[in-house]
Design a protein around this nucleic acid. Structure first.
Length: 376
RNA sequence: GUGGCCAUGGUGAAGCGGUUAACACUUACGACUGUGACUCGUACAUACGAGGGUUCAAUCCCCUCUGGCCACC
């Protein structure tokens, strides 16, 4: 139960719900997509751009900011919001995902994780206590427990022990956390095993947090497996707390998750793919560097109302990308984020009107027909 | 006119007698899910200026031609 979160409406046709999450920097409407800004910047976007695409809350990363420029410096300069000139809510990831993504550069023990900096190779020891302290220094509105995120290839026994460790770490995180007004979310692990997920859920919910996140998804498993876990966990998640699925996803994944009743999401897909020339449109994904767009004077997405689609042609975006221009990253990222955030806005609207199931059906049909729309 | 050097794919360029012609760029097409990411993957020379010769075998040696560069007259 969270005092900050209110479910405003439940769609009569499915698990989807409309909510409001109150934070120190204002309320956010859910379901919501949170752009990822690892290094205290959503790559290629100014905070002004973020406001223009209606970003309500963004992510930053504990591990990265701890290494550079250092959380103490950020605290000294007035906290993360002031440091990066973003006055809306911020959620910081704990560094748990780096336990997964840094692979060989880290070593896990009961006490914590020894990392080798990907920047200069220096050694660092991140513990649940330190992860919380760093996040308190940064001053995010929502912080995450330090967890272990095992890969999809991990066997049952490993996942079981990993989940138990994550529970013990969650307890330590909660005991350490004291910053007033700042919310602490717990993370559920358990891989693709429903019994382990149920157990993790039970343990994490028993400890009690301001919100609950599903971790360990999109780590190499099949899509069906991921959807299966989403479906299996949804009815077990606390009804009155925000439910967050970490690290997802594609537009299809988001629609699926919202349908099951999840509220918050984050993913590097719109930003990273934008920088690699892959753009999301109402007609499917398009690879802007492809030959067919060479002389295409039309807008990227004729149905999109964003600044990029209203002012620039596909031919120009293709040229910018191929020329390696900085503006390519900027315009592409702007559009992709607008697309994701607008998709969530439309989802909220559909939920409010009890037609989210229909919205989902239409979306799936449209996107399986135009999975890789090539032309205009 | 004489002497010397050089000619390898769209580009720059390795190889210098022996089965698949290195590498980079360009180009084409993919991928990307709590960012180690303007990144990564795959494909792309029936062919080494042209013709002839030596050799079991020639991009690699020899001759001629063609073209380019440099020096001298």
């Amino acid at each position: 139960m969270s005092d900050n979160f209110t479910v405003l409406h439940r769609d009569a046709s499915c698990g989807a719900r409309l909510g409001s999450l109150k934070t120190l920097h204002g309320s956010i409407e859910t379901p919501i997509f949170m752009p990822v800004g690892t290094n205290a910047t959503v790559k290629a976007m100014t905070p002004e751009d973020l406001l223009a695409v209606n970003a309500q809350i963004i992510l930053a990363n504990t591990y990265h900011l701890y290494l550079r420029p250092g959380h103490c410096l950020i605290e000294k300069l007035g906290g993360l919001h002031r440091f990066m000139n973003w006055q809306r809510p911020i959620l910081t990831d704990s560094g748990g995902f780096q336990v997964f993504s840094l692979g060989e550069l880290r070593k896990i023990s009961e006490e914590g994780v020894k990392f080798q900096s990907h920047i200069d190779g220096s050694s660092h020891f991140l513990t649940p206590e330190l992860a919380v302290q760093i996040q308190q220094s940064l001053g995010a509105d929502i912080i995450m427990c330090f967890d272990e995120c095992p890969p999809a290839t991990a066997d049952y026994d490993y996942v079981k022990r990993s989940l138990e460790l994550t529970t013990r770490w969650a307890r330590r995180c909660k005991e350490t956390h004291q910053r007033e007004g700042q919310q602490l979310f717990g993370i559920i692990q358990g891989g693709m095993h429903y019994d382990l997920r149920a157990r993790s859920l039970d343990e994490i919910c028993t400890i009690g947090f301001d919100g609950y996140a599903l971790g360990g998804l999109s780590v190499g498993e099949e899509k069906e497996q991921m959807y299966g876990v989403m479906e299996a966990c949804a009815p077990l998640m606390p009804q009155d707390s925000p439910r967050y699925i970490m690290g997802i996803g594609s537009p299809e994944d988001l629609i699926e998750a919202v349908w099951h009743g999840y509220d918050m999401f984050d993913c590097v897909m719109p930003t990273r793919n934008a920088r690699n020339g892959m753009l999301f449109t109402s007609q499917g994904r398009i690879n802007i560097k492809a030959k067919p767009y060479e002389e295409d004077a039309g807008p990227l997405d004729p149905e999109c109302g964003c600044h990029v689609c209203r002012n620039y042609s596909r031919a120009y975006l293709r040229h910018l990308y191929r020329a390696g221009e900085i503006l390519a990253s900027q315009l592409n990222t702007y559009h992709n984020l607008y697309y994701f955030l607008d998709l969530m806005r439309r989802a909220r609207e559909a939920i409010r009107e009890n037609r989210f199931t229909e919205f989902r059906r239409a979306f799936v049909v449209n996107h399986t027909c135009n999975q890789t729309a090539k032309g205009g």
